[in-house]
Simulated scan of single mutants.
Amino acid sequence: MKKLILIFALSISASFSFAQTRKTKNLIIVTLDGMRWQEVFRGADSAMISSKYTEDKDEVRKKYWTASLEDRRKLLFPFLWNTIAKDGQIYGNRDLGNNEELSNPYRFSYPGYNEIFTGFPDVRMNTNDAIANPNTNVLEFLNKQKGFEGKVITFSSWERFPQILNTSRSGLPVYSGYANLKNSDANARLRYLNELQHHVPHYLGDSTRLDFITYEFSKEYIKQYKPRVTYIAFDETDDMAHAGNYKFYLDRARQEDGYIKNLWEMIQADPFYKNNTTLLITCDHGRGEVPIDQWRDHGANVKGAENTWFAILGPDTPPNGELKTPTIIYHKQLAQTISMLFGFNFKAAAGHEVGDAIKTVFK
């Protein structure tokens, strides 16, 4: 009995020590829907620029093309390759054998987001329909931890996230599509955004608002309310790819890199967030590559749509830059990685499995 008590005590002590060693106090998660690893690591694709999917080819070449791969990807993602590649980590360059993949076989949005936030690929989550997710997600888990209650927020361009994060069960505030922010004490800028989003053109349809509005909501909410965990889900990269418009796909990717840069600079200038905040960027699925028409698509039958990537920057992450070690990691490992950034062990209330944390993320 004494041995059991000692083992238990040592276990509690180790867990407490683990939690205390973490410097991360806050977290920002950003997803770029359907953003291919090919452009992330190679920059603009010359074959795509020369194809029927690119209008204004000379303009696109001038903005995004150079012979050097390293320079080319910096043209498209300057913050990712000038800042995160220097001070953080980037995973998923399959050209180097560093593979990051989906575990779910469906390879589209709802199953991808379920895998990211619940830590496992559920065969029941095989739709983009408005079905409430039965699985516990890491955001609701964090929202129940001491000091995090009411400090977890989501803004998304696509309308489906209230179901993906099951707001009816989780109680998480999730502002998706054209939903208005409900805070009665919201500042004038947030109240203006509530109004503005209904008057801007609905270029993406009535279920998906412009990423600019999602970005502005997120930025202003962070300024006023200082959340501990903020999830921002952009969508336009996926929309432009489905539309077959490679120019706009590149433009939206470059725009979202700029949004992330601005957010990072803003929080690093804020004493509440400075040097104690981790930034994690990823996508929900990949896209096809061969034949060339498959770049527009993803799904169970699209080869390459399982290939994903992620980047991370923060006080607990060594500045290893682009990971070049041949290995394979999975999206299902991100939920526990997120949890362990705060020193917590994510265990789902329903008892479903949770992928192991990615150890190389931590110092």
Rank of each mutant, 00 (worst) to 15 (best):
K3D: 09
S15C: 11
F18N: 12
T21H: 08
K25H: 15
I28P: 03
T31G: 10
R42G: 09
G43E: 13
A44N: 05
S46P: 15
S46R: 11
A47I: 06
M48Q: 09
S51M: 12
Y53N: 08
T54Y: 02
D56R: 12
E59T: 15
Y64A: 06
T66H: 06
K74F: 06
K74M: 13
L75G: 11
W81T: 12
N82E: 15
K86A: 14
K86Y: 09
G88M: 04
I90G: 03
I90E: 03
N104Y: 05
P105F: 15
G112M: 03
F117V: 00
G119N: 06
D122N: 04
R124V: 00
M125H: 01
N126W: 05
N128I: 09
N133K: 01
P134W: 01
L139Q: 00
F148V: 01
K151F: 01
P162V: 12
Q163V: 13
I164K: 02
S170E: 04
Y175S: 00
S176N: 01
A179S: 02
K182Q: 03
N183T: 00
N183F: 01
A188V: 14
L190K: 05
L193T: 07
H198R: 10
P201K: 04
G205V: 07
R209Q: 10
I213V: 11
F217R: 03
S218E: 01
K219S: 14
Y221L: 04
K226D: 07
P227F: 08
T230S: 11
F234A: 13
D235F: 09
T237D: 02
D239V: 13
D251Q: 11
R254W: 09
G258A: 14
A269P: 05
T277W: 00
T277P: 01
T282K: 13
T282G: 07
D284W: 00
R287L: 07
P291S: 03
D293S: 05
H298Q: 08
A300K: 13
G321A: 15
L323Q: 05
T327R: 08
Y330R: 08
Y330P: 10
T337D: 14
S339R: 03
N345A: 15
A348Y: 02
G355K: 05
K359R: 10
T360F: 15
F362Q: 09
K363S: 05
